[in-house]
Amino acid sequence: MTEEERDAKALNDVNTYGCHVLKVLAGDSLPQFAYSIGIEKTSRQPDLLVTGLKLEVGHWIINEYNRRVREGETFVPNQPYEGFLDGFPVFFSPMLKDHYAEHVGWGLWLHNDDNFRVFQLIWPDTSGLWPWDPNATAYYRRAMPLLCEPLGISENPAALSVKPVEAMPMDHALDNKCHTMCICCEHVFDGDRPILYICRDFDGDDDVPQYLCGQVDHFSADGGRILHFSHLKENDPSILDPWLVPKGAAFERSSISDAWSETDIDA
Rank of each mutant, 00 (worst) to 15 (best):
W60N: 03
F119G: 00
Q120V: 05
F88R: 13
T74W: 08
W106N: 13
D113A: 03
F91W: 08
D125P: 10
P80A: 11
G105Y: 10
E102P: 03
K97P: 00
R70H: 14
N112L: 11
T74V: 15
H103E: 00
R67W: 04
W60Q: 08
L108E: 15
D113R: 06
V69W: 02
W60K: 09
H111W: 14
Y100R: 08
P80S: 13
E64L: 10
D98L: 04
P124L: 09
G87S: 03
N66A: 14
M95P: 00
F91Y: 15
V76T: 15
K97F: 00
L121A: 06
N78S: 13
D114A: 10
G83M: 06
E73D: 04
G87W: 10
Q79M: 15
G105K: 12
P80Q: 13
H59Q: 12
Q120R: 08
V90E: 01
Q120K: 09
L85F: 06
F92D: 00
P89N: 14
W106M: 15
G58P: 00
N115H: 03
Y100N: 02
W106R: 15
V118M: 05
G58K: 02
E82Q: 07
N115C: 02
P80N: 13
P77E: 15
I61V: 07
R68N: 10
I122T: 08
L121W: 07
I62S: 02
G107K: 14
D125W: 14
F88S: 11
E82L: 06
E102I: 07
W123S: 07
V76R: 08
W109S: 14
P124T: 05
W123T: 06
E82V: 00
D86E: 08
A101T: 01
E64K: 10
E102G: 06
T74Q: 07
Q120C: 05
F119S: 01
Y100C: 02
E73I: 11
P80V: 07
Q79N: 12
F88N: 08
D98M: 00
E82R: 04
G107N: 12
D125A: 12
G87D: 04
W60H: 08
H99M: 01
E73C: 09
F75R: 06
E71T: 14
D86P: 01
W123P: 02
W123M: 03
H99L: 01
H59T: 11
D114L: 04
T74Y: 07
I122L: 14
R68L: 08
L108Q: 15
V118F: 00
I122Q: 08
I122D: 03
F91Q: 05
L110F: 15
L110W: 15
G107T: 07
G58D: 00
F92S: 00
G83S: 09
R70D: 09
Y100L: 06
D86Q: 12
V69G: 01
H111G: 05
H103F: 11
E82Y: 03
P94M: 12
G72D: 09
L96M: 07
G107L: 09
Q79G: 04
N115F: 00
G72L: 12
G72S: 13
A101Q: 05
I62W: 02
N115A: 05
Y81M: 05
D125V: 09
H103Y: 13
P94D: 04
K97Q: 02
